[in-house]
Design a protein around this nucleic acid. Sequence first.
DNA 1: TTTACTGCAAAGGGTTTGCAACATG
DNA 2: CATGTTGCAAACCCTTTGCAGTAAA
Lengths: 151, 151
Amino acid sequence: MTAAAGQLDGLHRAAASRLRSVGQRYTANRRMLIEALADVSGPVTIAGILEGRSGLPVSSAYRSLTVLERAGLVQRVVMGEERARYELAEELTDHHHHHLVCSSCASVEDVTIPPELERDVDRILASLAGRSGFTAVSHQLDMVGLCRACG
Amino acid sequence: MTAAAGQLDGLHRAAASRLRSVGQRYTANRRMLIEALADVSGPVTIAGILEGRSGLPVSSAYRSLTVLERAGLVQRVVMGEERARYELAEELTDHHHHHLVCSSCASVEDVTIPPELERDVDRILASLAGRSGFTAVSHQLDMVGLCRACG
DNA sequence: TTTACTGCAAAGGGTTTGCAACATG
DNA sequence: CATGTTGCAAACCCTTTGCAGTAAA
């Protein structure tokens, strides 16, 4: 995603206003986190975030990410590993995507698929839901395999 | 899956022979784990397994499940939560399926979809792989929402 | 009888929380 | 200023490991 300066501006504006509407403040730490997430091309672990931005205490990262997630600005995702990863909410980026999870180096890359295939996914999920009294909210379609580097 | 007695027999036979071929033993604990997994209708956490079978020490559960997984008898899956869940390997049950993850009570149910939709999933994944130098190995298509009880 | 496996208890690693100091609106 | 937020350190929880004893083949 690696956002340009202008896009970053928009993100900050959106984040600030959304947080304000929930009675939360848009502090330096939270700004830093939004930027960190805008800078990468896939969901990252908290450890990954901390590496980059030294100085950010662990507990603050956890607490702030929780706040950002509850505000709908950040999406928490869990893939094959135990530890969670975080990415900007799709609502914020206007960029619906899926993930390529490398089973060797554990990296995760965003990827998009053509609209018609996306429609198929929705159809499949509707069918899944229908046959089981399940109220679908969202889906997760990830592919596990070997990335370009590891394959 | 809640297996009948005869099916259980088959599972035990398969497990025993598979383990033997890898120089491992099919012990009482491992048998108990296979039965526990055959008894439920979706992947379960280690805590969930331990609840049922009191007496099984935690460390043994972890170690045995690791062995069973490496032997290809058990599949370790991670959904929205941090802690892993375990299920019998599809190869063992001949029962390819997906998951319905309840975002409220965190329960996970197995579900199957019609073959033609399954083909669509494969097609989508092939497309995903093609456009990114990614070597697909497996996929994970899960639906998140509210289960019948919580909805 | 050999050697894989088990159980306990202690260690490890990531995440959460209490609390006093701090910064934002 | 009032209150949400931060940072530190301790607490927590789940998972892993060392080691002596046990049981499977």
